[in-house]
Design a protein around this nucleic acid. Structure first.
Lengths: 204, 204
DNA sequence: AGACTTATCTACCACTCGATACAAAACTTG
DNA sequence: CAAGTTTTGTATCGAGTGGTAGATAAGTCT
């Protein structure tokens, strides 16, 4: 059996290019013309490789998650719950203002509300945003067991708070805020986080 | 001189309907077909009244701001800086989950990233988001003068933090979070806010 | 009433959208 | 080399986009 003509473009490179377009223009705002131009391929190649525009987005999101998993591993490896929170917020201040990428977060910029035919895109993004919140929550539960987070603290609430601030920082960055502004938000947010020998956040 | 045929639809009612469409689908996702159907008018009437799709959005945003100005007046009338922060966050938890509206915040849902021909929409929304942050900051400066906010506190940082949390709550609400979840975020966020006789947020 | 002004409706414009049919090209295998 | 398989480019599809021309309807003014 013959093997067929080999693909003439690099899939990961093309996904990086597509990711940038989705990031900068959102799902609805990213047209196939933009995408194919950025990726350096023609529509039939795109559809052969990714199936559809939505398939392309999902592949780009997978790659985005893959990239961020390294950061997240570092974040979750913080020695205490508070260190984890600190790493989380400050690494986001950096990544959301990384000049190598469009400002903000793909999972926020990608599309909170979409038009006809893209109704499921916001759900897709939301479910992926929920992943890091879950990781944080589980890490905080662990911290409670380890004793570096007060038993009266609420891991779910803390994780949701951090996740919410992260989304807000994405919105802030998308409107042109600089790295200093995001760091400042991170700093203020951290003061909502219980210090080691203190607990301000307790269950109701 | 004659006065011409009177308009057969109510402008404010039509704007409310358009607002909901923009809110639910974003600027790019809101098609003229959706808008005219929701508003109960035909395209020529829309263009005669609002000039363009972008003009319609701006008119809807004006009306949105008008609605929220009442809430904001109540928020800013809080007796102390901390009361202001508390009112701000909890009123947002309510409004972003008001079943009478689409979930989230129009200024966030409307479009953080848009396509060709709508590049200025994100700026328009960002500038309107910045307004409430400015109001908060000025209120906190006043609070400092009044003595109910520590001199070492940073009004700009606090206002930006609250504004960021508000945006984050918009993202959270748009992905289906319920009112309780938003209230919880508000509660945690408030613990980052200096109590009356304490100041945790100081200038660097 | 009749002139004038403005809004509304039908129908349509040029264009872009996401997606594809088809044939030529490029590779592996026999 | 020839057969088989997959990718590529050209050219295009039907549907939908934001927006408008022109005629008609509905008012106010003299």
């Amino acid at each position: 059996m013959a093997m067929g003509r080999p693909r003439s473009f690099d899939t990961d490179k093309a996904l990086d290019d597509a990711m940038e377009v989705f990031w900068r223009h959102g799902y609805d705002g990213a047209s196939l013309a933009m995408l194919t131009k950025a990726m350096g391929i023609k529509p039939p190649s795109l559809y052969a490789a990714f199936g559809s525009k939505e398939g392309l987005l999902k592949a780009a999101l997978d790659r985005y998650a893959q990239r961020r998993s390294e950061h997240m591993r570092y974040v979750l490896a913080g020695p205490t719950a508070r260190d984890v929170a600190e790493r989380f917020l400050f690494s986001i201040a950096e990544s959301h203002t990384d000049p190598a990428n469009p400002p903000g977060c793909l999972l926020v910029q990608g599309g909170l509300a979409c038009g006809q035919g893209s109704e499921n895109i916001p759900f897709e993004l939301a479910s992926r945003r929920a992943l890091s919140e879950t990781e944080l929550r589980e890490r905080f539960v662990q911290a409670q067991q380890d004793g570096d987070l007060a038993e009266t603290a609420d891991p779910a609430a803390l994780a949701r708070f951090l996740s919410t601030v992260a989304s807000g920082m994405g919105v802030l960055a998308s409107s042109g805020a600089d790295r200093g502004a995001l760091r400042e938000v991170a700093r203020v947010s951290l003061s909502a986080f219980p210090e080691r020998d203190e607990m301000r956040i307790v269950k109701p």
